[in-house]
Simulated scan of single mutants.
Amino acid sequence: MAGDLEGFNFEQRHGKDRVRVARVWRAADGRHFMVEWGVSISLFSDCVGAYTRDDNSGIVATDTMKNTVYAKAKECSEQLSVEQFAILLAKHFTSFYKEVTAAVVVIVEKPWERVYVDGQPHEHGFKLGSEKHTTEVTVKKSGALKLTSGIAGLSVLKTTMSGFEGFIRDEYTALPETRERMLATEVTATWRFPDISAVQLKMPNIHFLPVNIPTKDNPSMVKFNDDVYLPTDEPHGSIQASLSRFWSRM
């Protein structure tokens, strides 16, 4: 919300973060389906009075937002995606409350995966996987919608055939060039709809440093031979890239 406040441009939002909800759907054949979501809600509304006149008549209580998450999850009798649930919530807040001019809903889905027993999918057994599914939706009063989805926490690694050489060297450069090293990263990726209009990647280094431990009596107690590493991610390099169509803005 933006408005006039004694000659200033004023913008505010308020909301509820880290609302945790799990939903289970039971199919007629006995199989269960479940999701666990961490929901954050931000509402823009015309409520300058709350800051200037102690007037909260334009405020949706954050506890109400929390309860709405559970109520809407209950109403979803059919299984739906995290994107569909985020859109459902955002549209509710912008249509149900005349004071709300826009809603932003961010959801992180925990990676629960079905367990397989003797090669067969278990009807109601699940285990926690690796990368999380993320989504962010913005819905305005006009109905305009912006949707971005992604993944976070996807750790990948290869133990050979990676190098780093030919980079800029100056008086502050101490890093030696190498044609052989371990490569590891944790991928955070987002993509924006409609279709795929933009993709963004963030891939910080997870370093695996060679271990060499010489002693006076044993100069080769631990002599590195592409085999023993010290895993560390502090400090780490950060790599980011984005690709978007000419008609899209990141």
Rank of each mutant, 00 (worst) to 15 (best):
R249C: 06
I151K: 14
T135Y: 01
V139K: 03
L43Y: 02
D233L: 11
K223E: 13
D227E: 09
H133A: 02
D29S: 08
F126H: 00
P204S: 04
M161Q: 13
F33Y: 15
L147D: 02
H92P: 06
P194L: 00
A50P: 04
A2K: 15
K16Y: 03
Y229C: 00
F193I: 13
D118T: 02
V60N: 07
R249W: 10
V156N: 06
T188S: 12
E109R: 11
V187N: 07
D54H: 07
T68K: 07
H122G: 08
F167R: 08
K146A: 15
F164I: 05
Y116R: 13
P121V: 03
I168R: 14
K110M: 15
K16N: 05
F126Q: 03
D29R: 11
E186R: 07
T188G: 09
V108R: 15
P176W: 03
S155E: 12
L209H: 06
A86Y: 00
F96H: 11
E177S: 08
R169G: 01
R23C: 09
P210T: 02
N225M: 10
V104S: 10
R169L: 02
L157C: 11
V108N: 14
K202R: 14
V21Y: 04
V211N: 09
A73N: 06
H14E: 00
V21K: 08
S248M: 03
T173A: 00
D195L: 14
V222T: 06
R181I: 10
A2Y: 06
L157W: 01
W25Q: 01
A73L: 02
V82A: 02
L183E: 00
V187M: 07
I206N: 00
D29E: 04
A144M: 11
G58P: 03
W37D: 01
D29F: 00
P210S: 02
V60F: 05
F164S: 03
S248N: 05
E234T: 14
A61V: 05
G7E: 05
S81C: 08
H32T: 05
A86I: 05
D233Q: 12
D46R: 08
H14K: 06
T64F: 04
Q79A: 14
D217T: 06
G30S: 02
F8Q: 13
T134H: 01
D226T: 10
S220R: 15
V21G: 12
D227C: 07
T148V: 13
V222M: 09
T52P: 01
Y70K: 00
N67S: 05
P214W: 00
F208L: 06
T232N: 06
N67W: 08
A174K: 15
E171D: 12
A152C: 12
A241F: 07
A189M: 04
G38A: 13
E123S: 15
T64R: 08
V117W: 13
V100Q: 04
D226A: 11
V35H: 03
P210K: 00
M203W: 10
S45M: 01
F246K: 15
H207G: 05
R31I: 10
G38D: 15
S40C: 05
T190W: 06
A50R: 01
Q84C: 11
